[in-house]
Design a protein around this nucleic acid. Sequence first.
DNA 1: GATCCATTTGTTTTT
DNA 2: CAAATGGATC
Length: 816
Amino acid sequence: MAGPCGNGTEEFAEDMADPFELDGFDSLSSAEAGAETARNAAEGGEAPLSSRLFGKAEAHGAPSAAASDGPAAAATRAAYLEGLNPQQREAVLTTEGPVLVLAGAGTGKTRVLTTRLAHILATQKAWPGQILAVTFTNKAAREMKARIRALIGDIVEGMAWLGTFHSIGVRFLQRHAELAGLRSGFSILDTDDQVRLLKQVLAAENIDEKRFPARQIAALIDAWKNRGLTPDTVPAGEAAAFANGRGARVYAAYQARLRALNAVDFGDLLLLPVAMLKATPDLLAEYRRRFRYILVDEYQDTNTAQYLLLRLLAGENGNICCVGDDDQSIYGWRGAVVENILRFPKDFPQAKVIRLELNYRSTGHILAAANGLIAHNRGRLGKTLHSVAGMGEKVWLRGHTDDEAEARAIADDIEALLRAGHSPREIAILVRASFQMRRFEERFVEIGLPYHVVGGPRFYERQEVRDALAYLKVIHTPDHDLAFERIINVPRRGIGAASVKKMHALARLRGLSLYRAAALMMDSDELPARTRRPLKDLMTAFARWRAQAAELPPAALAEVVLEESGYVDMWKAEKTPQAEGRLENLKELVRSMEAFDTLSGFLEHVALVMDADQAAAGEKVVLMTMHAAKGLEFDTVFLPGWEEGLFPHQRALDEAGEAGLEEERRLAYVALTRARRRAIISCVQMRRVHTMWQPAQPSRFIDELPAAHVAILDDALPLAPVTEPEVADTSVDNASAGAGQRTGRRTAADPVSGRTARAPFRQMERRHDHGLCEGQRVFHQKFGYGTIAEVDGEKLTIDFEKAGRKRIMAAFVEAV
DNA sequence: GATCCATTTGTTTTT
DNA sequence: CAAATGGATC
C-alpha cells in the first residue's frame, strides 16, 4: 500500500489512530510495541487526529475530492498548486524517492516546502504523524506550521514531528530515555551549565583550568558531538590537542557526570538519538516504517550528527526531500558541513535533483552582482538564477573616511528614504559583527530614528533570567545540581563556597544529589549554625514552593518564588543603572510564562528555544547581523564595513583558510540577496577598534563584484531610481560573471579617493528623463505594483493591481 | 565570607 | 573600551 488510503469513513477512523502517540509506548520494547499497535488499531484506539483531520479537511475540500476522484485527480487541480512555476510544481509533486531541491535565494523555497507538506497531507499519502519535517530555527518551524495551516487547515496540528533538529532529538530521548541511559524527566543543560560542569570535571582530573580553559574543552566536545563522535571514537590525534592528550578522557568523564546528573547537553540531543537508533535495529525499523516522508529545510546547514540521523531514518530509498542552497551555507563554524548537500546525489544515486532558479525577490543588477560574487567560489553545485523583475538599480558602492562618517551617511540616507515615504521596516542594516551595530545605534539615538536590533544579547542568557530559571528548575527537578548550586547563595544568604564544598563531599560519598545532601546537612552538625539556619530556611522554602507548584500556574509561582526568595529585593537594593533593566527582564520572564500551563512545559520550551520572541518589530529600521538576516528580505539593504579583516573576517581566514574565505563569500552572497530593490555596500578607510584607529582596506569582495552591475556613490543615495533600457535577458549565469567581467581597482577600489566623474546621482538630476514608458511595470510605495497605461510628461496614469487606476508623478514610482 | 580592585578578554556568526 | 572574571584584602 502506497499510503494509508482507505475509502470508507470507518476505515479512516481506525487508520488514523496514530499508534505511536499512544501512552505507554515508552515503557514497551519495540517488539511489544508492535503488538500493542495492532491491538489498539483493532480496537479503534484513541483517534485524536481523525476528528481534526476530517473536520477541517473537508471544509477545505481536498480530501473530499480525494474520496470521490482519488487523490491524484485532486492533486492536479488543487488550489494550492496554483501560481507555482514548473520547477516548484515538480518539487511539490515529486513525493516519492529521494529528492534534492536546490533553491537559490528568493526562489520561493518556503512556499515549495509548505506546499509539498500540504500536498502530502491533502492527498492522504500520509497522516500528519508520519511526516518528519525538520527546520533549523524555531521561528522557521512556527512559520512553516502557520503556512501549512493556511493551506489546508488544522490537520497540521497533528504534525508531532515538525520542529527543529533539537526538539525532535528531545522527543526521541523522552520516548526512549532508558535506551540512552537516562531517566524520564532528564534536564537539558545550557552552555553556561555545561562550562560550570566542565570546570568541576577539570578540577577532578587535576587539570589546570588556567592553562586549559573549560570553555575551550566545551567547544571541543561540542565540535566532536556535532561530528557524531563519542569519547571512544574521537581520533587520538585530536584528543591530544587538549591537556596533553587527555581530551578524550575529559570528554568521557564529562559524559559520565552528565549521566549521573540525569542531564544532557545540546549536542547530546542529536548524538544520543543517533547512537540509540544505531544500537537498536528494531527501534530503527519502527521509525523507518513510521516516517513515510522526511523533509529537511536548510540542508546545507546540517552537521554530521544531523546528517547521520537523517540517513539512518531515510534508509536507502526513503522518501526524503532535502531543500537547501549550497551557496547559502554560512554555519560551518558551528559544525555545518556543506559537503552534505554537495554529495546528496552520491548518497542517494536515484535521487532527483530539482533546481529552483527563478528569483522573485531581487531586481536584476542586485542579483547579477550577487551571482558574479559567488561565482568566485569553487565546489558549488552551480545554479543559474534568473530575475523575474527588471534590472532596477545597480548595487551602490560608497567609501567613507571612518566608521562614524559611515554611520552618519547611512542615517542620512535612511532619513531621506523615510521622508520619501519608504517604510522603515523595509530598510535594514546588515553587519558582519555585532560590535559594528554600536556606531549605528549611537547615531540613531542622536537623531531620534526609531530602530530595532534583532539578535542582541539573548534574553534567556541574561544573568537574572538564568537565576530565576534556576529556582524554577530546582522546584521542578530538585536533583538538578547545577541549578541548585547556582542559586544556593543568590541572593547572598551566608552559604559560602566552603559549605557548598562540604555538601558536595557528602553528596559524592553517599551518591546523592546536592539538594538531598543539603537536606541532610541542614539537620546535622557538619555546618556552623550561622550557615545552617539560612540553609534550613531555603530548603523549607523550596518544599513550600514545590507544594505550590501543583496548584499555581507557572507564572504565578514564579512571582511568588522571586519575591519570597529575596531575589527581587536583591536587585531593588542595587543602585546600578542596570538593576532596573534586570527587574524589567524578570517581569518579562513572568509574562512570557503566562502562555504555559505547566512548569515542565515552560522549562522545556526555554531549553530549546534560545530566542525569546522578539518584541514586535513595528515601524522601525532593522539592525542586525548578516547571519540573523538569513531568510529575510527588505526593499533597501545597507551593507557597511566591507573591509579586509572585518569582512571577510580575519578569524574566519585564520581558522579555516580557503574554506573560511568561501564561507565568508557565501555570507556576502546571502547578505546581498536580502535586498529586493536597493543595496548599498560601504567601506571605510579608518576604523576605530577599541581605542585605536586602524587603517582598513576595501574588502576583496568589492573587487569581485561584476563592474557592470555596480555604481559608485559619492554622495547621498539617490531617491529616484536610475533607469536603464530594459534588457531582454536579465539573467546572469555563473560562467559569464567569472573571468572577464570583474571590477577592476579602477572602479571599485578605494572609493574614497576614487571619486569619479560618473557620479550617478548628479547625472540623473540633470536629465529630467524618467525613462518610464507605457506598458511598463512599476512599483509605488503605497499602491504597490501596477502597469503604466499612459505617459504625460511627468504625470503617469497607472493601473495598479490592487488599488486600481491612479494618476501618479513619475518621481514616486520605480520601475521593476 | 564579602567587597573591592586589577587583570583579562572579547567582537563572528547560534540550536 | 567595557564587562566579566579572579585574586587579594578586610
